[in-house]
Design a protein around this nucleic acid. Structure first.
Lengths: 142, 142
DNA sequence: GTTAGTGCAAACCATTTGCAGAACG
DNA sequence: CGTTCTGCAAATGGTTTGCACTAAC
């Protein structure tokens, strides 16, 4: 809770309001490196602001994603997770054990440009999830 | 329903059983090019086999995906959709209007090899979803 | 003071589970 | 016939909605 990072100015710069709820949610996402599901955010942020409710979490996450403070990612199980918009990366998940590695955005740049020129779409820098078999599970399958 | 394609031999070749339920589900996915949600599959397949129930749809889709007859894809809204495993492709979705274009797998090949060598993972040829702004929505934003 | 944000409670809907009976091979 | 698959019914759990109240600016 006693955290140096303060998003209030960035919000106000866009004419948006800072509330303790939003602060708690941003704080949680800032400190947990990686992505969190709405339910996870709810339970963690509740520790900092106990009166927080689930509908608020959902509304706030959607709101902050729309305002580009957060990125919404779609991981394996079909649930949406969120992470801070800074520090963009993707994920490669083992479909066997669930182990996850981060994938830098750089190697996707070329592909993005290629897709943009062939489709006319302007690609989001949104999260992409890849699936595979991790080295450990490859071995155990032999 | 009177469709030439018959998956029964392919199933039996793997020691699996063919049932009218599975047939209806495969049939629906075969004729609807593109991906369908479990609910969509349920409603469509019901027209061919009215006594079909939802739990069966979910179980069958999961089963067929595990046996590599289907691919599970994760699209925008965080729901899982399924499509026939043949004809692999990915999707690029406009986050504004939802319009979708298919992306061939070929341009991803290089990236896949690169990720495989840098992470040690053996990548699935699983479905990837990209997001962007389609040409039409780019214009309407100006 | 205005507008935006939140809490509450309830509804909603997709998805899952247990178990008994039916059907495939 | 043995095993797998399905139907039924119910529970589950994440997500959404309406409305009145509160708080941010």
């Amino acid at each position: 809770m006693t955290c140096a990072i303060n998003y209030a100015p960035q919000l106000r710069a866009q004419g948006l309001r800072m509330t303790p709820q939003r602060n708690a949610i941003l704080h949680v996402l800032h400190h947990s490196h990686g992505h969190l599901s709405p339910t996870q955010v709810y339970h963690l942020a509740r520790k900092e602001f106990p009166s927080l409710t689930e509908p608020t979490v959902y509304r706030t996450l959607e709101f902050l994603a729309e305002k580009k403070f957060l990125l919404a990612a779609h991981v394996g199980n079909g649930k949406i997770v969120y992470e801070l918009a800074e520090n963009q990366h993707h994920h490669l998940i083992c479909h066997q054990c669930g182990n996850t590695v981060e994938v830098d955005h750089a190697p996707l740049e070329r592909l993005y440009r290629q897709l943009a020129s062939s489709t006319g779409y302007k690609l989001d820098s949104s999260h992409v999830t890849f699936f595979g078999l991790c080295p450990k599970c490859q071995k155990s399958k032999l």
